[in-house]
Design a protein around this nucleic acid. Structure first.
Lengths: 255, 255
DNA sequence: GAGCAGTCGTGATATTTTTCACGACACATT
DNA sequence: AATGTGTCGTGAAAAATATCACGACTGCTC
């Protein structure tokens, strides 16, 4: 079984590569990100009294091509009017539906450290349909404390809470060690979506949605950008011992 | 005909489309994300006593193809050994350099609300070369308070702090309104990299690196995934008035 | 009402990213 | 020492993604 199995499982394996593991099935990830961005901008413009929004405006703001915006809108099922643009009301309604922000989702928050507290206190998630129903922590010293209007509960009560309220979304703001374990446990209890802030890449079954937020990763990216722009970083090729002239990709050693 | 200009500008304009605006110039964004992921996994494996790490292992863990991992490694200038894998020490050293985590970077934190406090308290950034040198806030009631070992300073002192310490990186954890304004101000003062947590998409000059973290956006994505996996969301096409049978992309109206 | 200017819609095209297939090399075992 | 197995390295093909160019339609102005 060296060269991969061509036969393989029924059909799940075909799109198993990244569709199921990474975003879902609906839309590719970059598209989704842009869609959420449009939603945000449309909301902001709407609040300023605007009635419609043009593809060029969105494109300029985000820094992409206007055509791409139009393609995205088409993919989301949003129709614009020439000379006017896209009706903000329609954009919001449509993206509400596409992004699934229409109905409320109860979530539990696991871990009430610094980051967990920030999340618990952050009120902005309500607009996106997320409501934190309860906050849990293993640390006995934190239990009973009130954070963002929620009383921190002991983890022992988590199990029954999930079962009673049929919780399907969990926010994981626990330390790195034990995060995977906790995630596994949550999945076994029936949680179907995990928003992971622990600095590890969680592995979950295919039927569970996970988003690894991973601030450290974002930081690494920012610093990379920063360094490159400053000019004192590029180092694509190290040239370990054989000096190459081509900065292409790798370096064939044996020539 | 006008199938694009074969001659074209020198070369800078060619990759101007998104290279300069989006990530930088070094590596495409998805590659960078994976690289940071490798770094994280390698660190974790190294702490567990592992000495080398295989492309297949990384691929399986992240959910991508092993070839892609090898290509990425090659792009980063990391050489593996057949039958063994990639030496963790080399991976870490190389990615340290590529991601620019080698030397310390002093940063200031603007905004000490819930999220700002969490960031100030979060110790994990040190590993990635970031050191929070000072914390600022406009709110007079927060000034003087100690958060994560830093005394919150008034924004009035921010200007001179940036100038004196030659601060080039700012973490922006202010509310949405005024975030762009603050960012503009920071850029004028010489800041070259902004890690933005405000729920807006910041616009900065080309020579400034910005990463919009935007938790709400991540949440929207998670919820989308969740809904799609649950099966009660798909709606690619709305069929406003003309019912189409093709769920392709758009719907040609005039036929 | 006709012309003009601005914007959407989309097929074709270019570019980027990922996968496939296979060769080369290193370590383990006999 | 020779063989065997597992892993890297990489050119070529495929797939996905973004861009271009142009047509169609709308609202405004004269």
């Amino acid at each position: 079984m060296k060269t991969r199995e061509p036969s393989g499982p029924p059909g799940a394996a075909a799109r198993n590569r990244r569709a199921a593991a990474d975003d879902a099935s609906g839309f590719p990830r970059p598209l989704l990100e842009r869609l959420a961005l449009y939603y945000q901008i449309a909301t902001s413009e709407g609040e300023e009294g605007q009635d419609a929004i043009s593809s060029a405006f969105l494109a300029e703001l985000i820094g992409i091509d206007a055509t791409l915006v139009r393609k995205d809108m088409a993919a989301a099922g949003i129709t614009g009017r020439p000379k006017v643009g896209y009706a903000i009301a329609e954009v919001l309604a449509r993206l509400d539906s596409v992004l699934g922000l229409t109905d409320r989702n109860d979530a539990i928050l696991i871990g009430c450290g610094d980051l967990g507290s920030a999340i618990a206190r952050y009120a902005g998630f309500g607009r996106y349909g997320l409501k934190i129903a309860a906050v849990f922590d293993v640390d006995p010293t934190k239990i009973g404390r009130s954070v963002g209007g929620h009383v921190v509960l002991p983890m022992e009560k988590c199990k029954s809470f999930i079962e009673i309220f049929r919780i399907q979304i969990a926010i994981l703001a626990a330390p790195a060690n034990g995060a995977q374990e906790t995630a596994d446990w949550l999945v076994r209890k029936g949680v179907k979506a995990i928003w992971n802030f622990a600095p590890v890449h969680l592995r979950v079954p295919d039927d569970v949605a996970v988003r690894n937020e991973n601030l450290a990763l974002g930081l690494a990216q920012l610093i990379h950008m920063f360094k490159v722009k400053r000019g004192n970083l590029q180092v694509p090729v190290p040239a370990p011992d054989a000096a190459q002239t081509e900065p292409e990709l790798g370096a064939k050693r044996t020539g």
